[in-house]
């Protein structure tokens, strides 16, 4: 057997092994509540005893703020009740023009503990993208407005490829 075919076989075995290793933890394909699309579980929990009444009345409980700060998360500034036992918490963004608070955490009551979840960034792009950027095509809004620096990098990559071909292949002319 040639060396290339042995190397190819080894790579196939390696990648198959990697696939079998990770397959139990991959989020299901097309799942609308996967961490990248909706909510990611932060594994912060607080006893529901006094906290539930505070959340129902719209106050921010100190126990939750403390638990969040221990993991380097920012404290919420406003609580809103969605359904019985689930609350949306907003944070103060600190951006210049859109000064209203943005939905960031979700507190769910499970058993007698309150679990903290966090919304994925995509939720803001989908819900507020049209209003903030006046552009119906969310893909364009994300790549040219929210993450414009990456697109600058990508355009530079295309430019670099063009120049590299000029450097290596052209033999006559000024450049």
């Amino acid at each position: 057997m040639k060396a290339e075919s042995i190397i190819g076989l080894l790579m196939v075995i390696l990648l198959t092994g990697l696939f079998f290793y990770i397959v139990e933890d991959v989020p299901p394909y097309g799942d609308p509540s996967s961490p990248a699309l909706q909510l990611v579980r932060l594994d912060i929990r607080v006893d529901a005893a006094g906290v539930e009444e505070e959340l129902n009345s719209g106050m921010i409980p100190a126990a939750l703020v403390e638990a969040l700060a221990a993991r380097n998360f920012v404290a919420p500034s406003e609580i809103e009740e969605v359904t019985a036992g689930e609350w949306d918490a907003k944070i103060d963004k600190g951006e210049f023009y859109y000064e209203e608070d943005e939905k960031y955490y979700r507190f769910k009551k499970e058993g007698n503990q309150i679990e903290v979840y966090r919304y994925a960034p995509v939720v803001r792009y989908l819900e507020k993208g049209l209003e903030e950027t006046d552009v119906p095509n969310i893909v364009t809004a994300v790549i040219v407005d929210y993450r414009a620096y990456d697109t600058l990098g990508e355009t530079t990559v295309i430019f670099t490829a063009g120049i590299s071909v000029i450097l290596l292949l052209r033999r006559r002319g000024k450049l």
Binding site: D25, S34, P35, A36, L37, N72, F73, V122
Partner: peptide, 22 residues
């Protein structure tokens, strides 16, 4: 796909309970 975030400081805050995740 596991955390939903691409920012380094954000990942450092979200990842600790997921260290056993394959």
């Amino acid at each position: 796909s596991v955390t939903g975030s691409l920012n380094m400081a954000d990942l450092a805050a979200i990842l600790p309970p997921l260290y056993g995740n394959k």
